[in-house]
Computed example of a mutant assay.
Amino acid sequence: MKKILLLSAYKSDSHASWVKWLTQNLSADWRVLELPGRYYRWRIRGNPLSWLDELPALLNDWQPERILATSMVDIATLKGLFPQLAAVPVSYYFHENQFAYPQGEGQHHSVDPQMVQLYGALSADECLFNSQFNRDTFLAGVDALLKKLPDCKPADLRARLQPKCRVLPVPVNPLAVGEKIPGLILWNHRWEYDKKPEDFLTILRGLSSKHVNFKLALLGPRAEKTPPVLQQIRSEFAAAIVADGMVSRAEYEHWLGAAPVVVSTAIHEFQGLSVLEAVSAGAVPVVPDDLCYREQYAAANRYAPGQVEQAAAQIIAALQQYQPVATPAAFMQAGADWKSWLEQA
């Protein structure tokens, strides 16, 4: 049984679900080190320090044959700090890449996160991405960064990196299709700037102005302090809300199975697991013609980014003539692809 050290430096919900799927479905001798999904800048720069005492204790009587590390992990530094890891092959997994991550209001730009991922990719034996969009924006971002650097820089890093890059999505376990609730619109994303919920509010106002009779399931993680846009939706559309907040997994799957339509207004999405899960449960996606969505859904399910009137029209059409779409085959195949990865690792 292959010995695999799995390092995840930022245990968000999606990263934790990925780790759980791998360790439960792939037969290997797993050792897992995870760090909490908070204090992002400290996590991406400080994870070698955070594991400085824990890793030696683990490696004292166990030596991995493969390292699977997320791209938040400063794997280049870890290999330098721990000589017993220096020769261990590394698979570097990109849930996201810092070259294509939108900057929020009040955030300061820093090249450090990009450099961590660049050094990690260079030191890894293979770079795995959860979507083509993720891979392509990473490689384009590396090119753009090199053009900005003043001097003493290597030639064409893309040519060095591209041959070891491949797409390997996070597996999606299809959910049961339930009895659809007429008019139910699902929002199942984080209530943060990169999902642009302000556009969702505008879409709802547009539907209301057209006298569309709809219901709302407002799911997904949210901060302790209620986001203003969520407060506004609650105020304007209280009578339409049938679910609101973090619910149990069983309740979550119920609402996904009951919703005819799932909406995204994201300005950042590298795989879009929440929409993929909803689509597997029979929801029709209404998503931006951008990001990872272009490789997943037909043009009929995509609207021009920011064009809320077009999005509203697509929602109305989906509610009036409900026709579910197939979950993209590549993502349904991902479980088998991960098993093949383990055989080759």
Score class of each variant (00 low, 15 high):
2 K>G: 03
3 K>R: 14
4 I>C: 05
8 S>D: 15
12 S>R: 03
24 Q>F: 14
30 W>E: 12
32 V>M: 00
32 V>E: 00
33 L>K: 09
33 L>Y: 07
39 Y>R: 12
43 R>I: 02
46 G>K: 11
52 L>P: 07
52 L>S: 12
56 P>H: 07
57 A>M: 06
58 L>Q: 02
67 I>W: 07
75 I>F: 11
77 T>V: 01
79 K>G: 01
79 K>Y: 05
80 G>T: 00
81 L>C: 10
85 L>I: 03
95 H>L: 06
99 F>C: 01
101 Y>R: 15
103 Q>W: 07
104 G>A: 13
114 Q>K: 15
118 L>F: 04
128 L>G: 09
129 F>Y: 08
131 S>P: 09
150 P>E: 03
155 A>R: 09
158 R>D: 07
159 A>F: 04
163 P>R: 14
166 R>W: 11
168 L>P: 00
173 N>M: 09
178 G>K: 00
180 K>C: 05
181 I>N: 01
182 P>K: 01
183 G>E: 06
186 L>M: 08
186 L>H: 02
188 N>L: 15
190 R>D: 05
190 R>N: 06
191 W>Y: 05
191 W>L: 03
192 E>H: 15
195 K>H: 09
196 K>V: 00
197 P>A: 11
198 E>I: 13
199 D>K: 06
204 L>D: 01
206 G>L: 05
208 S>Q: 14
219 L>R: 12
220 G>P: 07
221 P>H: 13
223 A>N: 09
225 K>A: 12
226 T>H: 06
229 V>I: 10
247 V>A: 03
251 E>Y: 15
253 E>Q: 09
265 T>L: 10
266 A>C: 01
268 H>Y: 14
270 F>N: 05
272 G>F: 07
274 S>I: 02
276 L>F: 03
285 P>D: 11
285 P>C: 04
287 V>A: 11
288 P>G: 13
288 P>D: 07
289 D>F: 10
292 C>M: 08
295 E>Y: 11
297 Y>P: 00
299 A>D: 11
301 N>H: 12
301 N>G: 10
301 N>Y: 12
301 N>K: 03
305 P>R: 04
307 Q>A: 14
307 Q>G: 09
309 E>C: 14
313 A>N: 02
318 A>N: 02
319 L>Y: 02
320 Q>L: 08
322 Y>H: 00
323 Q>S: 15
327 T>F: 10
334 A>R: 07
336 A>Q: 15
337 D>S: 12
338 W>D: 12
338 W>I: 09
340 S>M: 13
342 L>T: 02
344 Q>C: 14
